[in-house]
Design a protein around this nucleic acid. Structure first.
Length: 267
DNA sequence: ATGGTCGTCCCACGA
């Protein structure tokens, strides 16, 4: 069994204490992180390596930044989403992980991708078409990766609430870039490639959220959105054993506004 | 309620 998780930490340096505590408690095998908000040189590498994790990351000052952590050997495949040479935002990293393999089983290579999809607000700015185009480019990349027929896990902050039951107040959020039909259509196109939403597959229309705005006591009222997702290739989905959202880190003092989403694969 | 949250960086901006 292997546990995968995705977490937008909203600054890895501000959240390093919470991150270390959560890694110790939850013991995920593979972690996708987003919004590191730091350059690679100032990423708290040693503290995480001390817990037994290998690290692949792409950093950026102040904004964005994504990483993959893994207990098993890790190699970086790609640190930029293809399709736009001018796009230098640190929103995509793809890694290969060599699992040990069980009794009588060969070593298994699996692929883990951490994505931080652009927020896209305000929708009347250039940020919205950038988001839509970014999701289309992601689709192009994933269409290719799916031909490899690997165990593939694409985790991240997609900045899309796929359906109204993923939003505490769908009417209030209808015009937001996280819920707009253009955003949802491009997210659905990812699923139509043959990917499975690990949380939705086992929990249905659950009203389970992964993000709560800091403002206005939204956390206390459980007024959140589900915008962090783990998408699985068929080879991964066949082995999906469990999934959930770990609300623990969101309860703490000085939390990220997101909390980890996880799934267990029977590998 | 001329407010309201947080992180980064120093003045707003992005989320």
């Amino acid at each position: 069994m292997a546990r995968f998780a995705t977490w937008n930490v909203n600054s890895v340096k501000a959240r390093i204490g919470h991150l270390i505590a959560w890694l110790r408690e939850s013991k995920p095998d593979v972690v996708m992180l987003q919004e590191l908000k730091t350059e690679a040189e100032s990423f708290p590498r040693l503290e995480i390596e001390d817990l037994g994790y290998n690290i692949a990351l792409v950093g950026q000052k102040t904004y964005n930044g994504v990483a993959v952590l893994a207990r098993h050997p890790l190699s970086v495949e790609c640190t930029r989403l293809p399709g736009d040479e001018a796009d230098d935002q640190a929103r995509y990293i793809e890694a290969l992980i060599e699992m040990a393999g069980g009794k009588d089983l060969p070593r298994r290579v699996l692929r883990a991708v951490s994505v931080y999809v652009p927020n896209g607000n305000p929708v009347d700015s250039e940020k919205f078409p950038y988001k839509l185009r970014w999701l289309e480019r992601l689709g192009d990349r994933l269409r290719h990766l799916l031909t490899l027929e690997e165990v593939l896990v694409v985790g991240g902050d997609y900045n899309v609430a796929p359906a109204d039951d993923d939003v505490y107040d769908p009417k209030a959020w209808a015009g937001d870039a996280l819920c707009r039909p253009e955003s949802r259509a491009r997210y659905r196109a990812l699923l139509h490639l043959g990917l499975t939403d690990a949380l939705r597959a086992l929990h249905g229309e659950s009203h389970l959220y992964s993000y709560w705005d800091y403002q206005g006591g939204h956390w206390a009222k459980d007024e959140g959105l589900r915008i962090d997702h783990l998408l699985l290739s068929p080879q991964a989905a066949d082995r999906l054993a469990a999934s959930g959202i770990d609300r623990g880190p969101r309860r703490k003092e000085k939390p990220s506004d997101h909390t980890p989403v996880w799934c267990d694969l029977d590998l």
